[in-house]
Nucleic acid binder design. Structure first.
Lengths: 175, 175
DNA sequence: AATGATCTCATCCTTTGGTAGGAAAATAAG
DNA sequence: CTTATTTTCCTACCAAAGGATGAGATCATT
Protein backbone atom coordinates (compact mmCIF):
# COMPACT_ATOMS: atom_id res chain seq x y z
CA UNK A 1 0.00 0.00 0.00
CA UNK A 2 1.44 3.17 -1.15
CA UNK A 3 0.38 6.69 -0.59
CA UNK A 4 1.41 8.98 -3.38
CA UNK A 5 1.91 12.35 -1.84
CA UNK A 6 0.89 15.36 -3.72
CA UNK A 7 3.50 17.95 -3.22
CA UNK A 8 1.43 20.95 -3.88
CA UNK A 9 -1.88 21.53 -5.35
CA UNK A 10 -3.00 24.80 -6.72
CA UNK A 11 -6.38 25.93 -7.66
CA UNK A 12 -7.49 28.62 -9.94
CA UNK A 13 -10.39 30.93 -9.86
CA UNK A 14 -12.24 32.31 -12.76
CA UNK A 15 -13.93 35.59 -12.18
CA UNK A 16 -17.04 36.89 -13.73
CA UNK A 17 -16.98 39.63 -16.28
CA UNK A 18 -16.30 43.23 -15.55
CA UNK A 19 -20.01 43.80 -15.63
CA UNK A 20 -20.63 41.28 -12.92
CA UNK A 21 -17.83 42.49 -10.80
CA UNK A 22 -18.82 46.12 -10.71
CA UNK A 23 -22.51 45.58 -10.71
CA UNK A 24 -23.13 47.75 -7.68
CA UNK A 25 -21.16 50.63 -9.09
CA UNK A 26 -22.92 50.45 -12.43
CA UNK A 27 -26.31 50.35 -10.81
CA UNK A 28 -25.34 53.29 -8.70
CA UNK A 29 -24.18 55.29 -11.70
CA UNK A 30 -27.32 54.56 -13.63
CA UNK A 31 -29.56 55.56 -10.77
CA UNK A 32 -27.52 58.72 -10.36
CA UNK A 33 -28.00 59.64 -13.99
CA UNK A 34 -31.65 58.82 -13.78
CA UNK A 35 -32.10 61.03 -10.76
CA UNK A 36 -30.39 63.93 -12.41
CA UNK A 37 -32.72 63.54 -15.37
CA UNK A 38 -35.66 63.45 -13.02
CA UNK A 39 -34.48 66.60 -11.33
CA UNK A 40 -34.03 68.32 -14.66
CA UNK A 41 -37.54 67.38 -15.57
CA UNK A 42 -38.78 68.70 -12.26
CA UNK A 43 -36.90 71.89 -12.88
CA UNK A 44 -38.66 72.40 -16.20
CA UNK A 45 -41.99 71.54 -14.73
CA UNK A 46 -41.94 73.53 -11.54
CA UNK A 47 -39.68 76.33 -12.56
CA UNK A 48 -42.37 78.72 -11.47
CA UNK A 49 -41.91 77.84 -7.85
CA UNK A 50 -40.16 80.48 -5.93
CA UNK A 51 -38.21 78.31 -3.57
CA UNK A 52 -37.47 75.68 -6.13
CA UNK A 53 -33.78 75.67 -5.41
CA UNK A 54 -34.27 74.86 -1.78
CA UNK A 55 -36.66 72.12 -2.70
CA UNK A 56 -34.24 70.69 -5.22
CA UNK A 57 -31.37 70.91 -2.81
CA UNK A 58 -33.35 69.20 -0.10
CA UNK A 59 -34.50 66.47 -2.42
CA UNK A 60 -31.03 65.89 -3.75
CA UNK A 61 -29.65 65.87 -0.25
CA UNK A 62 -32.17 63.36 0.98
CA UNK A 63 -31.95 61.10 -2.03
CA UNK A 64 -28.19 61.03 -2.10
CA UNK A 65 -27.93 60.57 1.62
CA UNK A 66 -30.11 57.50 1.29
CA UNK A 67 -28.08 56.32 -1.66
CA UNK A 68 -24.89 56.89 0.27
CA UNK A 69 -26.18 54.88 3.17
CA UNK A 70 -27.29 52.14 0.85
CA UNK A 71 -23.94 52.14 -0.89
CA UNK A 72 -22.02 51.99 2.35
CA UNK A 73 -24.11 49.12 3.65
CA UNK A 74 -23.78 47.31 0.37
CA UNK A 75 -20.03 47.63 0.33
CA UNK A 76 -19.42 46.93 3.99
CA UNK A 77 -21.42 43.72 3.98
CA UNK A 78 -20.02 40.61 2.40
CA UNK A 79 -21.66 39.60 -0.81
CA UNK A 80 -24.23 36.86 -0.78
CA UNK A 81 -23.13 33.48 -1.99
CA UNK A 82 -25.12 33.69 -5.16
CA UNK A 83 -23.18 36.76 -6.13
CA UNK A 84 -19.79 35.33 -5.35
CA UNK A 85 -17.26 34.29 -7.90
CA UNK A 86 -17.38 30.63 -8.42
CA UNK A 87 -14.17 28.67 -8.18
CA UNK A 88 -13.17 26.50 -11.03
CA UNK A 89 -11.66 23.24 -9.99
CA UNK A 90 -9.50 21.42 -12.45
CA UNK A 91 -8.25 17.95 -11.86
CA UNK A 92 -4.58 17.96 -11.18
CA UNK A 93 -2.51 21.03 -11.30
CA UNK A 94 -5.05 23.65 -10.88
CA UNK A 95 -4.71 27.07 -9.48
CA UNK A 96 -7.15 28.62 -7.16
CA UNK A 97 -7.30 31.68 -5.14
CA UNK A 98 -10.35 30.73 -3.36
CA UNK A 99 -12.14 33.57 -1.66
CA UNK A 100 -10.01 36.26 -3.14
CA UNK A 101 -13.06 38.40 -2.88
CA UNK A 102 -13.18 37.95 0.85
CA UNK A 103 -14.54 40.88 2.80
CA UNK A 104 -14.41 40.56 6.56
CA UNK A 105 -17.65 41.12 8.38
CA UNK A 106 -16.23 44.06 10.26
CA UNK A 107 -19.43 45.01 12.01
CA UNK A 108 -19.64 41.54 13.50
CA UNK A 109 -15.99 41.67 14.42
CA UNK A 110 -16.47 44.83 16.38
CA UNK A 111 -19.67 43.48 17.83
CA UNK A 112 -17.82 40.48 19.17
CA UNK A 113 -15.10 42.89 20.31
CA UNK A 114 -12.32 40.90 18.72
CA UNK A 115 -9.03 42.73 18.92
CA UNK A 116 -6.48 42.99 16.13
CA UNK A 117 -4.16 40.53 17.76
CA UNK A 118 -6.90 38.04 18.35
CA UNK A 119 -7.88 38.19 14.72
CA UNK A 120 -4.29 37.66 13.65
CA UNK A 121 -4.05 34.60 15.82
CA UNK A 122 -7.39 33.38 14.58
CA UNK A 123 -6.17 33.50 11.01
CA UNK A 124 -2.93 31.73 11.74
CA UNK A 125 -4.88 29.13 13.65
CA UNK A 126 -7.15 28.58 10.69
CA UNK A 127 -4.11 28.13 8.50
CA UNK A 128 -3.24 25.13 10.61
CA UNK A 129 -0.45 26.54 12.73
CA UNK A 130 0.24 25.30 16.24
CA UNK A 131 0.43 27.66 19.17
CA UNK A 132 4.18 27.42 19.07
CA UNK A 133 4.33 28.37 15.41
CA UNK A 134 1.96 31.25 15.94
CA UNK A 135 4.08 32.48 18.82
CA UNK A 136 7.16 32.33 16.61
CA UNK A 137 5.47 34.16 13.78
CA UNK A 138 4.23 36.95 16.01
CA UNK A 139 7.41 37.13 18.10
CA UNK A 140 5.64 36.49 21.35
CA UNK A 141 5.68 33.67 23.88
CA UNK A 142 3.40 30.67 23.83
CA UNK A 143 1.81 31.97 26.99
CA UNK A 144 0.67 35.04 25.17
CA UNK A 145 -0.79 33.02 22.36
CA UNK A 146 -2.61 30.85 24.85
CA UNK A 147 -4.04 33.86 26.59
CA UNK A 148 -5.27 35.24 23.30
CA UNK A 149 -6.74 31.86 22.53
CA UNK A 150 -8.67 31.83 25.75
CA UNK A 151 -10.14 35.25 25.11
CA UNK A 152 -10.85 34.28 21.55
CA UNK A 153 -12.67 31.10 22.52
CA UNK A 154 -14.65 32.98 25.11
CA UNK A 155 -15.68 35.69 22.70
CA UNK A 156 -16.60 33.19 20.01
CA UNK A 157 -18.26 30.97 22.60
CA UNK A 158 -16.41 27.84 21.55
CA UNK A 159 -14.37 25.20 23.32
CA UNK A 160 -11.75 24.17 20.80
CA UNK A 161 -9.63 25.81 18.15
CA UNK A 162 -11.26 23.74 15.47
CA UNK A 163 -14.63 25.09 16.52
CA UNK A 164 -13.24 28.60 16.53
CA UNK A 165 -11.98 28.12 12.99
CA UNK A 166 -15.26 26.69 11.77
CA UNK A 167 -17.30 29.46 13.35
CA UNK A 168 -14.96 32.21 12.24
CA UNK A 169 -15.13 31.00 8.65
CA UNK A 170 -18.86 30.67 8.77
CA UNK A 171 -19.25 34.19 10.10
CA UNK A 172 -16.84 35.64 7.55
CA UNK A 173 -14.44 36.77 10.21
CA UNK A 174 -11.59 35.20 8.31
CA UNK A 175 -11.15 34.13 4.67
CA UNK B 1 -27.48 20.50 0.55
CA UNK B 2 -28.08 22.61 3.60
CA UNK B 3 -26.07 22.65 6.71
CA UNK B 4 -27.73 23.51 9.95
CA UNK B 5 -25.80 26.45 11.20
CA UNK B 6 -25.97 28.67 14.13
CA UNK B 7 -26.12 32.34 14.57
CA UNK B 8 -28.42 35.07 15.09
CA UNK B 9 -27.46 38.08 16.97
CA UNK B 10 -29.79 40.45 18.58
CA UNK B 11 -28.60 43.68 19.96
CA UNK B 12 -30.48 45.79 22.39
CA UNK B 13 -29.13 49.13 23.11
CA UNK B 14 -30.42 51.82 25.38
CA UNK B 15 -28.91 55.13 26.07
CA UNK B 16 -27.99 57.60 28.70
CA UNK B 17 -29.44 60.85 27.47
CA UNK B 18 -31.14 62.13 24.39
CA UNK B 19 -28.18 64.29 23.63
CA UNK B 20 -25.78 61.42 23.97
CA UNK B 21 -27.90 59.08 21.96
CA UNK B 22 -28.56 61.36 19.06
CA UNK B 23 -25.19 62.96 18.94
CA UNK B 24 -24.50 61.75 15.44
CA UNK B 25 -27.86 62.93 14.21
CA UNK B 26 -27.42 66.35 15.75
CA UNK B 27 -24.00 66.71 14.23
CA UNK B 28 -25.40 65.62 10.95
CA UNK B 29 -28.24 68.11 11.11
CA UNK B 30 -25.93 70.96 11.97
CA UNK B 31 -23.59 70.15 9.12
CA UNK B 32 -26.59 69.91 6.83
CA UNK B 33 -27.79 73.35 7.83
CA UNK B 34 -24.30 74.71 7.47
CA UNK B 35 -23.95 73.29 4.01
CA UNK B 36 -27.25 74.74 2.91
CA UNK B 37 -26.10 78.12 4.16
CA UNK B 38 -22.89 77.70 2.28
CA UNK B 39 -24.75 76.82 -0.85
CA UNK B 40 -27.06 79.82 -0.41
CA UNK B 41 -24.04 82.00 -0.11
CA UNK B 42 -22.57 80.45 -3.21
CA UNK B 43 -25.85 81.05 -4.98
CA UNK B 44 -25.73 84.75 -4.16
CA UNK B 45 -22.16 85.03 -5.11
CA UNK B 46 -22.04 83.14 -8.34
CA UNK B 47 -25.61 83.64 -9.49
CA UNK B 48 -24.28 84.81 -12.76
CA UNK B 49 -23.08 81.35 -13.67
CA UNK B 50 -25.21 79.77 -16.25
CA UNK B 51 -25.00 76.18 -15.11
CA UNK B 52 -25.19 77.01 -11.47
CA UNK B 53 -27.97 74.58 -10.82
CA UNK B 54 -26.09 71.64 -12.18
CA UNK B 55 -23.07 72.62 -10.17
CA UNK B 56 -25.12 72.93 -7.02
CA UNK B 57 -26.90 69.68 -7.66
CA UNK B 58 -23.65 67.88 -8.27
CA UNK B 59 -22.03 69.35 -5.21
CA UNK B 60 -24.98 68.53 -3.04
CA UNK B 61 -25.12 65.04 -4.44
CA UNK B 62 -21.46 64.38 -3.79
CA UNK B 63 -21.41 65.91 -0.36
CA UNK B 64 -24.51 64.15 0.80
CA UNK B 65 -23.45 60.84 -0.64
CA UNK B 66 -20.27 61.08 1.39
CA UNK B 67 -22.22 62.14 4.41
CA UNK B 68 -24.62 59.27 3.89
CA UNK B 69 -21.78 56.81 3.72
CA UNK B 70 -20.25 58.31 6.82
CA UNK B 71 -23.57 58.18 8.61
CA UNK B 72 -24.18 54.59 7.63
CA UNK B 73 -20.75 53.51 8.80
CA UNK B 74 -21.19 55.44 12.01
CA UNK B 75 -24.54 53.90 12.74
CA UNK B 76 -23.68 50.39 11.68
CA UNK B 77 -20.84 50.26 14.14
CA UNK B 78 -21.79 49.39 17.66
CA UNK B 79 -21.71 52.17 20.15
CA UNK B 80 -18.92 52.29 22.71
CA UNK B 81 -19.50 50.53 25.98
CA UNK B 82 -20.00 53.72 27.88
CA UNK B 83 -23.09 54.42 25.84
CA UNK B 84 -24.50 50.94 25.94
CA UNK B 85 -26.82 49.43 28.44
CA UNK B 86 -26.51 45.86 27.36
CA UNK B 87 -25.72 43.72 24.40
CA UNK B 88 -27.36 40.39 24.30
CA UNK B 89 -25.96 37.80 21.98
CA UNK B 90 -28.35 34.97 21.46
CA UNK B 91 -27.60 31.96 19.39
CA UNK B 92 -30.25 29.90 17.80
CA UNK B 93 -30.58 27.48 14.96
CA UNK B 94 -30.62 29.09 11.61
CA UNK B 95 -30.21 27.54 8.25
CA UNK B 96 -27.56 29.02 6.09
CA UNK B 97 -27.01 27.80 2.60
CA UNK B 98 -23.36 28.47 2.52
CA UNK B 99 -21.44 26.44 -0.01
CA UNK B 100 -24.47 24.65 -1.25
CA UNK B 101 -22.62 24.59 -4.49
CA UNK B 102 -20.01 22.30 -3.01
CA UNK B 103 -18.88 19.41 -5.17
CA UNK B 104 -16.26 17.12 -3.68
CA UNK B 105 -13.15 16.64 -5.70
CA UNK B 106 -13.72 12.93 -5.99
CA UNK B 107 -10.83 12.29 -8.31
CA UNK B 108 -8.48 13.80 -5.80
CA UNK B 109 -10.12 11.85 -3.02
CA UNK B 110 -9.50 8.59 -4.80
CA UNK B 111 -6.05 9.76 -5.73
CA UNK B 112 -5.25 10.22 -2.07
CA UNK B 113 -6.93 6.91 -1.31
CA UNK B 114 -9.12 8.38 1.36
CA UNK B 115 -11.67 5.87 2.60
CA UNK B 116 -15.29 6.65 3.36
CA UNK B 117 -14.75 6.49 7.06
CA UNK B 118 -11.77 8.77 6.88
CA UNK B 119 -13.76 11.33 4.95
CA UNK B 120 -16.55 11.16 7.48
CA UNK B 121 -14.11 11.78 10.27
CA UNK B 122 -12.49 14.56 8.30
CA UNK B 123 -15.79 16.35 7.95
CA UNK B 124 -16.71 16.00 11.59
CA UNK B 125 -13.24 17.23 12.46
CA UNK B 126 -13.72 20.27 10.28
CA UNK B 127 -16.99 20.98 12.00
CA UNK B 128 -15.05 21.40 15.19
CA UNK B 129 -15.77 18.14 16.93
CA UNK B 130 -13.33 16.50 19.34
CA UNK B 131 -12.18 12.94 18.91
CA UNK B 132 -14.53 11.90 21.66
CA UNK B 133 -17.50 13.54 19.99
CA UNK B 134 -16.63 12.00 16.65
CA UNK B 135 -16.37 8.59 18.29
CA UNK B 136 -19.79 9.06 19.84
CA UNK B 137 -21.35 10.17 16.58
CA UNK B 138 -19.97 7.25 14.65
CA UNK B 139 -20.57 4.74 17.46
CA UNK B 140 -16.95 3.69 17.64
CA UNK B 141 -14.25 4.02 20.26
CA UNK B 142 -11.84 6.90 20.57
CA UNK B 143 -9.05 4.51 19.66
CA UNK B 144 -10.66 3.96 16.30
CA UNK B 145 -10.99 7.62 15.67
CA UNK B 146 -7.39 8.14 16.57
CA UNK B 147 -6.29 5.42 14.20
CA UNK B 148 -8.29 6.98 11.41
CA UNK B 149 -6.75 10.30 12.27
CA UNK B 150 -3.28 8.89 11.94
CA UNK B 151 -3.98 7.47 8.51
CA UNK B 152 -5.71 10.65 7.51
CA UNK B 153 -2.82 12.83 8.54
CA UNK B 154 -0.40 10.58 6.77
CA UNK B 155 -2.38 10.56 3.55
CA UNK B 156 -2.85 14.29 3.63
CA UNK B 157 0.74 14.76 4.65
CA UNK B 158 -0.04 16.97 7.60
CA UNK B 159 0.82 16.97 11.26
CA UNK B 160 -2.22 18.45 12.96
CA UNK B 161 -5.94 18.27 12.59
CA UNK B 162 -6.12 21.98 11.92
CA UNK B 163 -3.75 21.51 9.01
CA UNK B 164 -5.80 18.62 7.78
CA UNK B 165 -8.91 20.77 7.86
CA UNK B 166 -7.24 23.63 6.06
CA UNK B 167 -5.82 21.41 3.36
CA UNK B 168 -9.01 19.45 2.94
CA UNK B 169 -11.01 22.63 2.47
CA UNK B 170 -8.49 24.03 0.09
CA UNK B 171 -8.58 20.89 -2.01
CA UNK B 172 -12.37 20.72 -1.94
CA UNK B 173 -12.37 17.42 -0.18
CA UNK B 174 -14.93 18.75 2.24
CA UNK B 175 -17.38 21.68 2.11
C1' DA C 1 -3.09 61.81 36.31
C1' DA C 2 -6.43 58.22 36.14
C1' DT C 3 -8.86 54.79 33.44
C1' DG C 4 -9.83 51.13 30.48
C1' DA C 5 -8.40 48.27 26.83
C1' DT C 6 -4.93 45.62 24.87
C1' DC C 7 -0.95 42.99 24.85
C1' DT C 8 2.25 40.63 27.20
C1' DC C 9 4.12 36.67 30.20
C1' DA C 10 4.06 33.27 33.85
C1' DT C 11 2.65 29.10 36.67
C1' DC C 12 0.04 25.11 37.70
C1' DC C 13 -2.99 21.83 36.33
C1' DT C 14 -6.31 19.14 33.33
C1' DT C 15 -7.84 17.60 29.02
C1' DT C 16 -7.24 16.52 24.41
C1' DG C 17 -4.53 15.13 20.61
C1' DG C 18 -0.96 12.50 18.35
C1' DT C 19 2.61 8.54 17.87
C1' DA C 20 3.94 3.74 17.95
C1' DG C 21 3.04 -0.74 18.00
C1' DG C 22 0.12 -4.59 17.61
C1' DA C 23 -4.04 -7.18 16.45
C1' DA C 24 -8.71 -9.00 15.37
C1' DA C 25 -13.02 -8.82 12.68
C1' DA C 26 -15.52 -7.38 8.48
C1' DT C 27 -15.68 -6.63 3.56
C1' DA C 28 -14.54 -6.66 -1.00
C1' DA C 29 -12.02 -8.39 -5.07
C1' DG C 30 -9.59 -11.71 -7.66
C1' DC D 1 -11.07 -19.61 -1.00
C1' DT D 2 -7.37 -16.46 -0.57
C1' DT D 3 -5.75 -11.89 -0.39
C1' DA D 4 -5.90 -7.11 0.34
C1' DT D 5 -8.23 -3.42 2.27
C1' DT D 6 -11.03 -1.35 5.59
C1' DT D 7 -12.66 -0.85 9.96
C1' DT D 8 -12.32 -1.78 14.42
C1' DC D 9 -9.92 -1.76 19.03
C1' DC D 10 -6.17 -1.77 22.51
C1' DT D 11 -2.05 -0.06 25.64
C1' DA D 12 1.25 3.22 26.76
C1' DC D 13 3.73 7.30 26.29
C1' DC D 14 4.55 11.94 25.04
C1' DA D 15 3.16 16.44 22.97
C1' DA D 16 -0.11 19.95 22.40
C1' DA D 17 -3.97 22.44 23.74
C1' DG D 18 -6.88 24.46 27.06
C1' DG D 19 -8.46 26.52 31.84
C1' DA D 20 -7.77 29.52 35.73
C1' DT D 21 -5.52 33.12 37.66
C1' DG D 22 -2.39 36.88 38.53
C1' DA D 23 0.23 40.53 36.96
C1' DG D 24 3.35 43.93 34.50
C1' DA D 25 3.69 47.11 30.29
C1' DT D 26 1.85 50.02 26.81
C1' DC D 27 -1.28 53.21 24.74
C1' DA D 28 -5.15 56.11 23.89
C1' DT D 29 -8.83 58.71 26.09
C1' DT D 30 -10.65 61.56 29.36
Amino acid sequence: MKYPQILDIYTMSGSKSFLGKHKAIIIYSISLAFLLLLLKWLELRFIIFKHSFEIYAGMIAIIFTVLGIWLALKLSKPKPDSDRVETVVVEKEVYITRREDFVPNSSLISQLELSKRELEILELMAQGHSNEEIAAKLFVSISTVKTHNQNLFFKLDVKRRTQAIEKARRLDLIP
